[in-house]
């Protein structure tokens, strides 16, 4: 039976925890607003980029000389999974959901006899994958030092991926991230970025007319493809940031509510114990007086 002092301490510590989760929720809420605006603003650019590239790719057709980034290596034996997660936890199932999605894909690919490699962006995903796939993780990019996400970060990651592609280290690269739909809904998403997959509808938009290229189509593609990789990664990072704060906000909201429930329960126990002690003392006094 805990003493009254123990119970008081316990309530105080739960209250302190509740204050922290409440503060974290409010911080996440304010950061979410900015992250959400950034993610939504980046969508049209990434989408237009994809559309333009799709149109160009469709009109270039199956050119033998098309850059490696567009046509791929021609096989699909080695898959690189680019797993983007957060650097921090305390955000509910956010990191786990992305990692689970990637792991399911890895298991399916391995069952088909393909080789799987991981490229981790964000320490949390790395920590979760390390146990199972330690040797298959080829690189880890840690963005903890970055306070705000810039396009340079995405470019840096893209450069590393493209360098590996040029070395024929993989055939297909798939990006894993969490798409932000709303504060309570973040959808773990897989997007193949090398070679890029385009909507087959895009080809029809031209109505058979061929593009004029100024200068050559090849030069344009050489410039545009690496940029597209960076743009898609940048979009993934921004969506991830917004999803992270959304997930953290709802996780901390839950934690605050749970702490509230716990405080109510603990207060009840505290009051009961106190009442029991008073009653006990009264009985002792009364029975003592009667005995006289």
């Amino acid at each position: 039976m805990p003493s009254l002092k123990d119970l008081r301490n316990r309530i105080a510590s739960t209250k302190a925890t509740q204050k922290i989760t409440k503060a974290m929720q409010m911080v996440a809420a304010s950061k979410l607003r900015r992250a959400q605006a950034a993610a939504e603003a980046a969508r049209p650019y990434a989408a237009s980029m994809e559309k333009v590239l799709g149109n160009i790719a469709a009109s270039v057709g199956s050119l033998e000389t098309a850059p490696l980034l567009l046509r791929g290596t021609g096989s699909d034996n080695v898959h690189l999974l680019l797993v983007c997660t957060a650097e921090r936890g305390l955000c509910g199932p956010f990191n786990t959901a992305i990692v689970r999605h990637a792991r399911e894909r890895a298991i399916a690919l391995t069952a088909e006899g393909k080789e799987v490699k991981f490229f981790c962006v964000g320490r949390k995903g790395y920590d979760q994958l390390r146990r199972q796939y330690g040797k298959q993780i080829v690189e880890l990019v840690d963005l903890r030092a970055a306070r705000t996400l810039h396009f340079e970060h995405a470019e840096m990651i893209a450069e590393k991926v493209i360098a590996r592609c040029a070395q024929f280290e993989f055939d297909v690269c798939t990006l894993f991230f969490s798409r932000f739909r709303s504060v309570i809904a973040q959808i773990p998403t897989a997007q193949q970025i090398i070679p890029p997959l385009f909507d087959s509808k895009a080809a029809d938009a031209l109505g058979g007319a061929a593009y004029e290229f100024e200068p050559e189509a090849e030069d344009i593609l050489h410039e545009l493809l690496p940029r597209n990789v960076a743009v898609q990664i940048f979009r993934a990072l921004l969506e991830n940031a917004a999803s992270f704060y959304g997930a953290q906000m709802s996780a901390m909201d839950n934690a605050t509510r749970n702490a509230g429930d716990m405080i109510r329960k603990q207060t009840l126990t505290y009051n009961r114990t106190r009442q029991a002690m008073i009653t006990k003392e009264l009985i002792e006094i009364i029975s003592g007086a009667e005995a006289l």
């Binding site: 593009y211 004029e212 290229f213 200068p215």
Partner: peptide, 19 residues
Amino acid sequence: PGVEGDMGILAGHAPLVTP
């Protein structure tokens, strides 16, 4: 401002891509 010179684009321009 295209790499190979400025271009005025009007409605109905031929399909074109330029950096």
